[in-house]
C-alpha cells in the first residue's frame, strides 16, 4: 500500500518584481520546476509558475496577476526548463516576457493569428458581432 498524505498545494500570489527572487528561493529549497501557464481573465493576465517537491509531491504555485502591458522578466536564467513555457505564453497570449534564453520570437508554433488566446481574442469576437 502506498502512503498518500500529500500536503495541500500552495498558491502564492506575488508581485511581478518578486518573481525572480521567489523562483530562485524555491529552486534553492530543492523544488523542481513543473509548469508555467497563462490565462487571460477579466482583462488581466494571470501567470502561474508551478514548482513541485518530488519528495512530498507538494505543488507550490507562484501567481502573478498583471495588466496586459506589464513586462515580465524571464525565469529561464534560473530555471532553464521554462523556455518552452515562456515562449508559449508569449506567443499564444502576448504576455510581454523579456530576456528568454532561447527566444523563438513568436515562431514556436508559427500560427497566423497573433496571440489567439490573449486580449485580441475579445476584439475579434466583437468585430464579428458588430
Amino acid at each position: 500500500m502506498v502512503e498518500h498524505s500529500v500536503p495541500e498545494n500552495i498558491l502564492e500570489e506575488i508581485p511581478v518584481e518578486d518573481l525572480l527572487l521567489r523562483a530562485l528561493e524555491l529552486k534553492k529549497e530543492g523544488l523542481r520546476f513543473s509548469q508555467a501557464n497563462a490565462a487571460y481573465v477579466d482583462e488581466k493576465f494571470e501567470l502561474s509558475y508551478s514548482f513541485s517537491d518530488y519528495e512530498t509531491l507538494q505543488l507550490h504555485t507562484l501567481r502573478l496577476v498583471i495588466e496586459t502591458d506589464v513586462k515580465v522578466p524571464s525565469i529561464t536564467e534560473i530555471v532553464p526548463a521554462a523556455v518552452f513555457y515562456e515562449n508559449e505564453m508569449k506567443e499564444l497570449f502576448g504576455v510581454k516576457i523579456e530576456m528568454i534564453s532561447m527566444d523563438y520570437d513568436n515562431k514556436l508554433y508559427r500560427i497566423r493569428q497573433e496571440a489567439p488566446l490573449g486580449p485580441q481574442k475579445k476584439e475579434v469576437e466583437n468585430a464579428t458581432v458588430g
Partner: peptide, 15 residues
C-alpha cells in the same frame, strides 16, 4: 526543435 506542425489550439475551444 521547431514544433507547430500539429498545433491545433484546442485550448481555445473553451469559448
Amino acid at each position: 526543435p521547431s514544433i507547430g506542425f500539429i498545433h491545433r489550439g484546442l485550448e481555445s475551444l473553451t469559448d
